[in-house]
Design a protein around this nucleic acid. Structure first.
Ligand code: NAD
Ligand code: NAD
Lengths: 230, 230
DNA sequence: CGGGCTTTGTGAACGCGTGCACGAGTGCCT
DNA sequence: AGGCACTCGTGCACGCGTTCACAAAGCCCG
């Protein structure tokens, strides 16, 4: 029977909130605040205070009863747990609308995710400068990943090419992928994939809007929309 | 007809998966497939087959035992449930990097979310054409929302202005907000807010990368790791 | 027309996340 | 020093979501 073999595991739900706490703590730190209570942190983060304390307790007992948490120290602990003590260079595949916006956005580098490369298949785009980043050929992907020690890849290609982009990223040695294309990627189980699907977000909002109306009158006119998979 | 009681509530987790099923069904429909089993749909969606069936059962019993689901009919039912039987025009606040990428992206209009307006405070941007959409002054926001019957707003301003943008959207009559700024918006409880925070996504990936390294030594344990689909 | 095959729909068990409630520790004030 | 006010850390119960397992239901074929 393995005792505590697997490293202190932090629940997924908690992991997804830690970055939020981290950002708030950073803001408070900049404001000169050096101690903060779970109540205040919960208020700023829009969550329950008990949840904040439980989340932070997974990192260890870094609070002081009767006082709160020391902001600077807590920031360090969260960064350590999230692996943010060093930079994680990322490579972006697809220099289109979205890829360009991402490259031009300084927020990533500032948060420890510098753009190590931006690649595209379109020869006419290769060599052009986009948001301070030069577009390179997708053939250089393995070389970029290897030399810059990139482990996170971003898929910003059209839907039809997303699987190809993911395959190339995996082949090049990337182990985590952030996918912006509205499609389910098929990758080896050891690869971590997260998706950002704006259409899904809008459709969830649509559901709630429709539901909001449903209380009033009869069902809305049912005209089937064209089914298209772009 | 059967006594159609008030709309049954659909679990949040299910609502967030319905758009995925819908997209897959659309693709299959375009491929000429007119019947599909929960097994196949689960495979394409990267989820459990029982989950698919349970999710779809919230819409009603629209499958045929021994056969599967009729693709076209199921598409219609999901669209009806998500409120996609008609368009939901959206208004984008902030015509910067991201706002422009969103405006230029045709995928929204194609999926029933046409851009009814793109507004900005920057006078030098007002009047310019971005991705086929003309940037208008933020002062016109109420008028746009009213005349175009907009109920969904998108915040694409810098972090510091996000709360202001949200306030203006709410004041103008918008009831759902999609927030791209990395900040917690404060809005009346009746307003539905969803956020898309790329930094959070990257930091979650960072956590897993860091963890991968930390436990790399003796961890050959075959702990089945499903592809995380949030 | 009945038997075998397929697939749905769902009851039930399980596991995880949430939020409450409260004991335990800390600092401050008298 | 003792009391008091405050806040953390966490045991516990509850509810939601996931998954299994299987009866019900439909199709096909001989
Ligand atoms: N632009 C947006 O606002 C937006 C919003 C939501 C979702 N998306 C999604 O993001 C993705 C990109 O959108 P976009 O607007 O930037 O598209 P785009 O067409 O503007 O750009 C895609 C780029 O990818 C390149 N590309 C194509 N195949 C490739 C391959 N196999 N390898 C490498 N590069 C390849 C193309 O040359 C092009 O430069 C799409 O899947 C889209 O659905 C975009
Ligand atoms: N660009 C990206 O790839 C990216 C990625 C992740 C997150 N984000 C987030 O998206 C948001 C926008 O990013 P961006 O790169 O487009 O920024 P940007 O600076 O390029 O554009 C912001 C735009 O908002 C306008 N604006 C400012 N205050 C406003 C107000 N009160 N009302 C209306 N408009 C206002 C500005 O004039 C500007 O045109 C930011 O919060 C950023 O953190 C962007």
């Amino acid at each position: 029977m393995a005792p505590d073999r697997n490293r202190r595991r932090i629940p997924d739900a908690t992991v997804s909130r830690l970055p939020v706490y981290l950002r708030i703590l950073g803001e408070q730190h900049d404001l000169g605040v050096d101690s903060i209570s779970s109540d205040r942190l919960a208020e700023l983060g829009g969550v329950n205070a008990a949840k904040v304390r439980k989340d932070l307790s997974y990192l260890g007992s870094y609070g002081t009863r009767g006082v709160g948490y020391e902001v600077a120290y807590l920031i360090f602990q969260i960064q350590r747990e999230l692996g943010l003590t060093h930079d994680w260079p990322v490579v972006i595949v697809g220099a289109g609308n979205l890829g360009q916006a991402l490259s031009g956005y300084g927020g990533f580098g500032a948060r420890g995710f510098p753009v190590a490369g931006l690649v595209d298949v379109d020869a006419s785009k290769v060599g052009t400068l986009v948001g301070g980043v030069r577009v390179r050929s997708i053939d250089e992907l393995p070389q970029i990943v290897q030399s810059k020690r990139v482990s996170i890849g971003i898929v910003a290609t059209p839907t039809a090419s997303a699987q190809d982009a993911a395959d190339r990223l995996v082949a090049a040695g990337v182990t985590s992928i952030l996918n912006f294309a509205p499609t389910v990627l098929s990758v080896p189980p050891s690869i971590e994939v997260r998706k950002v699907d704006l259409a899904v977000e809008l459709q969830i909002l649509s559901y709630h809007e429709q539901r909001r109306i449903a209380g009033g009158a009869a069902t809305t006119a049912a005209r089937p929309r064209a089914v298209s998979a772009s």
